[in-house]
Design a protein around this nucleic acid. Sequence first.
DNA 1: TTCGTCATGTAATGGGTTACATGATTAC
DNA 2: GTAATCATGTAACCCATTACATGACGAA
Lengths: 184, 184
Amino acid sequence: MLEIAVLGLLNESPMHGYELRKRLASLLGAFRAFSYGSLYPTLRRLSEAGWISEEAPIEASAGVAPRARRKRVYRLTADGKEHLAELLAEVGPDAFDNEGFGARLAFFAQTRSDIRLQVLEGRRRRVEEQRDGMKSALARAGERLDRYTRELHEHGLESVDREVRWLTELIEHERSDARRGTEK
Amino acid sequence: MLEIAVLGLLNESPMHGYELRKRLASLLGAFRAFSYGSLYPTLRRLSEAGWISEEAPIEASAGVAPRARRKRVYRLTADGKEHLAELLAEVGPDAFDNEGFGARLAFFAQTRSDIRLQVLEGRRRRVEEQRDGMKSALARAGERLDRYTRELHEHGLESVDREVRWLTELIEHERSDARRGTEK
DNA sequence: TTCGTCATGTAATGGGTTACATGATTAC
DNA sequence: GTAATCATGTAACCCATTACATGACGAA
C-alpha cells in the first residue's frame, strides 16, 4: 500500500521524504496520511531492494564538515519502474479492497487499459457482493433493529449502492474508450 | 473499538465468543469482522479487568472427566456496565473518526440522549472539515489531475457530502425528540 | 531572536491479521 | 461415517502510529 503509493509518486517525479508525505496526503484525499514513522523506514526498504535510488545531499569538499544532511532526493530506478508495473498489474484479491483499489485507481494513468478494466470490474464484483450481503441482512433483521442501527445500515447500503453505480459508469467509459481505440 | 463492541453486545445479552463474532460482523455491517485471534484475547483481557464474567461450561461431577470445554458464556458485570457507560460517554476525538463513531452509533440505543447529540455534532464537524479540505484541494488541483484521480476525489467528496446531510437529518431528529421530551 | 515549518529519523507500542491446531456437535 | 460448521484458542507476524529527538532555514 505505502509501497505502491511511494513508487507511483516517484514515477511521476523524484522527491524527498517530506514532500512525498504531503503529496501522499493530498493524493489519498486526506483519508490516509502516513506518518514519518512508516514513510522513512519504507524508503529505506525500497532503497535496499534497489527500486529507488537515494541521492544524498552534496557533501561540502573542504574540511569545514557542515554536516548538512538535508533533502535526500529519491528517484525510481529502472528496476523500480518494472516492479511498479508488476504491482499495478496484480489483479489479485488485494486489488479490490478499499485500500488496494484506491491505490491502484490513483495511478490508473500509469496502468494498461486492459488492467484498468479488470481492476474496475473486480472492484465492482466485490462491492456488489457487499451490497447484496448488506441488503439481505437488512431485510432479515430490519424490523428488529433499533432506529440508529438501522439508520447506520441503510446509510451504508446507500453508499455501496452509489459506488456500484459509479463503478459502472467508469467501466462503460473505459469500454467505449477501448472501442474507439480499436475500431479505426 | 473491539472493547466497546464486545461490551455493548454483551450488554444486550450474554453470549459466547463464536456467537459474539457473528453478531459483531452483522452489527458492523461486514465492513469490520474481527478475527478470533483478536476476539479471544480481548475477552480474556476484559475478564481479567472484571468487566465481564466467564461462565465456564458445567463440569460433570462423576469421575468420567468429559473435559467438554465448550461454550464459555460471557456476561457483563456491574463494573462492566459502568465502564461501558463511560466509554459511550467519552466524546473525545476518537469518538468522531470512522471506527469510533460507527461503534458509538451502533449502541446509541444504550446512550444518553445528550451524549448522542454531542457525538453526532462532533462527527458532523469532523466530516465537514474533511469535506472542506477535499473541496479546496480539488479546486486548487482539479485541472491538473488526470481523469481517474479527479474521478476518485469527486466521488469521495460526494460521499462525505452525503454523510454531512445524513448527519444533519439525524441531529434534527434527535433535537425534535429532545424537545418533545421536555416541553410537556 | 524567536517562531513556524521544513526535514529526517528512531524506539516503543498497538491493534490487529494469518495461519495453525484442536476437538465437539449436527446433519446427511 | 463423514462433511460442515460450531467452538476455542495460540504464535508469529505486519503494518502502521505515537512520541520523541534533532536540527536547518526563512520570515517577522
